[in-house]
Amino acid sequence: MNKRKKKTFTIDKYLPIYYAGASGDFNLIHIDPEFAREQGLKANILQGLCTLGIATGFLVGQDDPDKLKSIRVRFAHPVLPGDVLTFAVESTKGDVRFSAVNQRGEEVLTDCSAELG
């Protein structure tokens, strides 16, 4: 794992809808902006497991997925449609530590670690 590995992903406005279709997670806070706002959120928020999926894609890249042995994240800040997320490997001593930050500098995932074989 390259210690300087870094990649940016743009969260398409409709990604929560695509992800709902792909995963079956149609919880209204993910797909209905009006409903989400009634629940005190800024807008509909991306499913946490979609962000985790993007993170696994960042870690595995074009390699054999068998190399990813474990992953652990905390969903610290909601990901909103239109966000631009930057994933970066922070450390490769022992487990890989990585970060996921939005365009406002907020960490959307914290305590991120992964084991790569």
Binding site: S23, C50, G53, V60
Partner: peptide, 28 residues
């Protein structure tokens, strides 16, 4: 939907030649 563009997940011909012999799922 999770922006994972590894051909093992998406291209049957490519995946057929891998050690898995077929499309595999991303860990997530």
């Amino acid at each position: 939907a999770t922006l994972q563009d590894n051909p093992l997940y998406s291209e049957p011909e490519f995946a057929a030649l891998s050690r898995y012999g077929t499309i595999v799922a991303p860990p997530s």
